[in-house]
Nucleic acid binder design. Sequence first.
RNA 1: GCGGAAGUGGCGGAAUUGGUAGACGCGCUAGACUAAGGAUCUAGUGGGCUUUAUACGCCCGUGGGGGUUCGACUCCCCCCUUCCGCACCA
Length: 865
Amino acid sequence: MSQFRPQEIEPKWQAYWEEHQTFRTNGDSERSPYYVLDMFPYPSGAGLHVGHVEGYTATDIVTRFKKARGFEVLHPMGWDAFGLPAEQYALKTGTHPRETTAKNVETFKGQLKSLGFAYDWEREINTTDPDYYRWTQWIFLKLWEQDLAYIAEVPVNWCPALGTVLANEEVIDGKSERGGHPVVRKPMRQWMLKITEYADRLLEDLQLLDWPEHLVEMQRNWIGRSRGAEVDFAVDSESTGGVQANIRVFTTRPDTLFGATYMVLAPEHPLVEELTASERRDAVDEYCEQAAQKSDLERTELQKEKSGVFTGAYAINPVNQEKIPIWVADYVLYGYGTGAIMAVPGHDERDWEFAKAHDLPIVEVISGGDVQQEAFEGDGTLVNSAFLDGLQVEEAKQKIIDWLEDRGDGKGAINYKLRDWLFSRQRYWGEPFPVVHREEDGAVVPLPEQQLPLTLPEVEEYQPSGTGESPLATIEEWVQTECPETGKPARRETNTMPQWAGSCWYYLRFVDPDNDEAPIDRKLEEKWLPVDLYVGGAEHAVLHLLYARFWHKVLYDIGVVSTKEPFQRVVNQGMILGTTYRYAVDEAGQPFSMVDHDGDSIEAQQERVVRPDRVRWEGETPMHPEQDIELDAIVEKMSKSRGNVVNPDDVVGEYGADSLRLYEMFMGPLEQTKPWDPRGVTGVHRFLSRIWRLVTEDEDLGVEITDGDLDDELKRRLHQTIHKVTDDTDELRFNTAIAAMMEYVNDLYKRDEVPRVALSPLVQMLAPYAPHTAEELWVRLGHKPSVSEQPWPEYDEAWLEEDSYELAVQVMGKLRGTVEVAKDADEEAAVAAARANPDVERHLEEAEIRRVIFVPGRILNFVIG
RNA sequence: GCGGAAGUGGCGGAAUUGGUAGACGCGCUAGACUAAGGAUCUAGUGGGCUUUAUACGCCCGUGGGGGUUCGACUCCCCCCUUCCGCACCA
């Protein structure tokens, strides 16, 4: 026997797999292909965290399991390496992002290997590699050719401190996600991608996918399709001193058109300028100016009462020719619909509030509520609506749309929340756009494909130019070029692509990483796509997945890929939470406990945290290391500043990679958010150690390994275990699969002798979960390596059932006892057995049995009365 | 506010075509082996009542309240709480 020392066996088997190319994908294999993909990481300086390990272990188990089940598995890994942190580090230290990236990749790769993940490293890709981004640029050219890329002056989130424009998702509460710097709106020249043109297909094709409901729902909401009508309101030119205009609105409630008592334009709406009456101009100008200065946040949250100003102009309601006032208010968003609304205060809560605040009339057109008290948004019968009176809402919608279309005053329309994709960043560390701006006429000219990749030039300064242009703008010799068509002077585009670009198609490149003719060979794409299982964090539930789907559809339209959707099945691993130990300090800096007498947390203005390894334990109570203060232990998201981050390297160092992997899978369901419990690791480590001692015949155990056959009972247990572990693994229920193996081992421990044939399948089942330990034990059981090349153990249905079973017996639905009955016992036999049980009989003897419910294998219930 | 997910022992979690609630693990308790045990092995461990004690038995128990059913963690209605996403989207 020998001690279980993971630190000794793990490097050994990692070297073995590498040397024997155990997990190299054979592209010519006849086996069924199976593509398992992880969301590839951004190689940050912080290294791998336990959240990565969770998802990567899950896919690793699937990879090894599917391989054992006869599939040819593709399981690649790469680096999403463009991005802001490396550039910010360059700003601080002058280190080229390429160097930072290379170093971080090295760290990550070492960590991944130390965990024994079965990647085919021959297919490693890096989005910052010119051989890779050449094809990212190529796809951009295709988008341009398809008229899906354009340049626009759009108000963007300009962050002066970072000297760059941020995407909406990078702005949180009006501040930059990284660094918390203030963000303001500023119009700038930007590249946009017309994702909106694909909105319908992105919505429709969600049906084809095997994704969790919440994810599909989030995508649906993001796309935000709504059906309604566009209606044209003529402006009353008498009220504008002769200015003629037309205001088009989008509404989902055309049925309420008779209830429109005023109109609202967004402050940015171009008609505001034209329509405003001279005597109202000062007030309107002032209002619009204020609105422009407000951030999105201020325009929404701080808005207790809806603000707005009257323009002095009136519009004419096309259904009844009534004159209604036109207002300007920032509760109407310029970016949605037409930037103008017809306000129906009787049946829209927002309009109702505005009408109340500004004393505008409220008219009821749908009966069912009291519109003077509150807006009625429910279904009902049309009233005060001339030819619509008496109809229900749905009928009225259709009728009014027909009516509007006949008269040319409007039409049925569909609107989306989804906006075009802001696709440029004013940064250095991103893919350059493969286009030039010709100086003589300002034309945008794409580079010919042969000139790709357009590589990033070396740069002296990583500092943004400050004007909003990227550092690339400062390199004259790079910027100055000539037009590939005319040879005349031209300037290169100095924006770069956002980080999403590289991750939009990397799953394709893994299939054919070295192709220098095309991003991917069509035949290989047909073989491997779509991705069978894609695992990653929920933070990418909307944008990454939506953008990648969009690109995939474009590539589908131009024949590069044959599949409509890239990811057949997506699973989000749940977040792993850490424990934070905290206390509070008062204004004078005096520390005090945040735990009250009942053990509840109390609120504190300022709190401090204590790192877990500095906590002083008084029994079960966490205490401040120096002071007599009880710490408040709370479970929350891991973050550096809270000192609650668990470093996988530390766990590997102490317990080994297999224990870390096993623990993360044993914590609970993959998709669930789970708290990290340091003691939990010891539990699974103990389990591995128990198997180890069993297989290595630890003399203290007194369990002997024999070459004999399985007795019936053990055979049954083995087959039941294989059955359970197989099903659970297949359905990603790793926690219960591990529990089944634990139970089996517990049973084996109760025996004096265990035949080798009872252990080998166990080791095989363990292999995807704890591969190093399994490899070593496989050899110690007398087999040739490697267990990773073994087919998955089979179970025999015949051995899943027992000859007899314990039948639960109820009287009036209450459990009164259990009896052992034969597997095929009929009701008569079951009742006889049950009545022979005194505990059951006692409840039956005085009563009349009205009914007997017997479900073989499950329950016997007596109804008495 | 809208949408999604979820509330089960001291803790992480099992169990849902309705059929013995609490598998497995942590922690805890006792015992064994020990010079020692934060090692290991064995047994026990939802709460309460009954009992000299044990066994047996009984009652309660899956966020709360109703309901359907022979039988409900599971299905239906109402309510509460937590987490996640979106947030004036007309």
